[in-house]
Design a protein around this nucleic acid. Structure first.
Lengths: 240, 240
DNA sequence: CGCTGAGTTGACAAGATTCAAGGGCCGTGG
DNA sequence: CCACGGCCCTTGAATCTTGTCAACTCAGCG
C-alpha cells in the first residue's frame, strides 16, 4: 500500500535539527523537570518521536488536540479544508518550528498537518494549565512566549504581484532556514509547484513562469526542486 | 490645529460597548483583584480611558509597550509602515477587540494604531509576569487565552478575486460587529475606500466598482459610508 | 518501452490596474 | 449666505497582468 519510493525515506545522512534550535525546546525542558519533580520517568513527559512519510498526516482537523509538535526534519504543511473540498495551505513548517498551538484554544486541531516530504517530528504532551507545580508559572510564561512569536513584520505571501509573492516566498523560506543554521542560499523545495501556487494564491503556470523568469535574470538558479538564491538584494526588495 | 469637525467628535448618543463584550474584560477584572490584594486603589490598576480623534494615534511603532488597549467605541486601524514609505493596513479593530498584544513579545509596539473615526479606548497597564500574586496564574492563563483567540478559520482578506475579497471584508466585519451585539446587517464603514483597498491589496477603483456591482445585484445597499447587507447567503459564499 | 504525473511553455481570454474625467459633499473664505 | 476649492467616490477607456486551456517535455515507474 505504500506509495513512498525508496529514495523518499528519511535517510541516515540527513540529520534532524538540534534541540537548541527548536522553538519547543524551552517547554520540552520544563516538561522533563516537572516529570522529575513528580517522580515520573522523564521519558513519559517529553513524548515521542514520530516519522511521517510523504503525504501522511501528523494530525487532522477535528483530532483531539493533546499536544504540540515540533518539526525536526523535513517539512510539514498546515492545510485548511474549505467547504467546497479544496485545500488552502496556511503555512509550510521548517525544522525547529512548532505546530499545533491551536491546542491552547480548542480541544481539537483546526487544520490538517501533512508531510510534504518524509519528516520527523517531536510530540510534546500538552502541559496541563491547572497543574500546580513549582514550574507552572514557567510553563505559562513559556507558552506566552511561544504564542507571541507568530507575528511577522513582513507582508503576507498573498500580497502584491505574482513576482513579489514568489520572491517573498523564497526569501521567507531562506530566512527561516538560515535562522536554524541550515543553508539559506541553496535549498530544496520539497513541495510541488501546485502547492507553492496554493499558498501564494495564484496558479501553477504563473509560479513556473515567474521562477523561470527569475532564473533567466540570474537572480536564482532553479533545477527541479532545488533552488539557489544568487542575487539576494533583488529578492529582498520584494519581500518587504 | 484641530482638523476634526464638530460632527466627528465622540457624541453622547453613541455608546461604548459593554464591558462584558470586551475581550479584555477578564484581564481587566484580574487587575482590579490584584490591586485590591496589594492594598492599592483599584483605579490605578485598570488604567485610563482615552479618546482618540480621527487620524490620531493610540500608539506608534517603536513606542514603549506598557499596556494593552481595548476598543470601546469607534474603530482603530493597525498599520505597518513599509520601508518605502507606504502604509500597509493590517487590521481594522471593532469595539471589544484588543490591540497591543505585541507588548508580550517586545518592549515596543511594532505597528501604528490610528483611529479611523473618533474613538474611545481602555488602556490596561501590562501585568508584570514576574509578580508573585495569588492571581499570577490566572493572569497568565488569561493571557494565553487572549493570544489564542487570534486564529481565523476564514481565508485571509487578500485571497481570491476582488469580488471575493470585498464580500469577505463585509462579511467578516459584519460577523465581528454582530458578535458584540451590534448591528451586523446595517453598519457604517468609517474607513475610506482607499483604506479598504489597502487592506484588500487592491485599488480604490476596484473596491468602488465591486461595491457598486454588489449594490446593483441587490446583495448590498451602499450609500456613502453606510452599508446594508441584504443577501447574506450570497455574501457568505465568497467568505470561505 | 509505454504510462503517468509534474513541470514548462504558448496562445488567448478574463480580470485588474492605470489614467483620465466628472460628481458630490464639506469646510473655508469672500 | 453663497461661491469656491479640495477631497473622496465613482465611472469610462486603454493597457497590462494573470488565469485558462492546450500541448509538449521529462523523469520515475511498472
Amino acid at each position: 500500500m505504500s506509495n513512498v519510493s525508496k529514495h523518499e525515506r528519511v535517510t541516515k545522512r540527513a540529520r534532524p535539527i538540534a534541540c537548541r534550535d527548536c522553538d519547543l525546546n524551552e517547554l520540552c525542558r520544563l516538561a522533563v523537570l516537572i516529570a522529575h519533580h513528580d517522580g515520573r520517568d522523564s521519558r513519559t513527559a517529553v513524548g515521542t518521536w514520530r516519522t511521517i512519510e510523504r503525504g501522511a498526516a501528523l494530525f487532522r482537523t477535528g483530532d483531539a488536540a493533546n499536544g504540540l509538535f515540533a518539526v525536526r526534519q523535513g517539512m510539514i504543511k498546515s492545510v485548511h479544508l474549505t467547504e467546497d473540498g479544496h485545500e488552502r495551505i496556511v503555512a509550510f513548517h521548517t525544522p525547529g518550528e512548532v505546530i499545533g498551538v491551536e491546542a491552547f484554544r480548542a480541544d481539537a486541531y483546526i487544520c490538517d498537518a501533512i508531510a510534504v516530504e518524509p519528516s520527523l517530528c517531536c510530540e510534546l504532551p500538552l502541559p496541563e494549565h491547572g497543574a500546580q507545580s513549582p514550574h507552572a508559572h514557567s510553563v505559562l510564561t513559556s507558552i506566552v512566549r511561544l504564542l507571541s512569536t507568530a507575528a511577522p513584520l513582513t507582508a503576507p505571501l498573498t500580497r502584491g504581484s505574482a513576482r513579489e509573492r514568489v520572491t517573498r516566498f523564497l526569501f521567507d523560506l531562506s530566512t527561516r532556514l538560515q535562522k536554524r543554521g541550515m543553508n539559506g542560499r541553496h535549498f530544496k523545495l520539497p513541495m510541488s509547484r501546485t502547492e507553492i501556487a496554493n499558498i501564494l494564491d495564484t496558479r501553477v503556470e504563473t509560479v513556473s513562469r515567474t521562477l523561470q523568469q527569475l532564473h533567466r535574470e540570474g537572480a536564482i538558479c532553479v533545477r527541479g526542486s532545488t533552488v539557489e538564491l544568487l542575487d539576494l538584494t533583488l529578492l529582498s526588495e520584494a519581500a518587504r
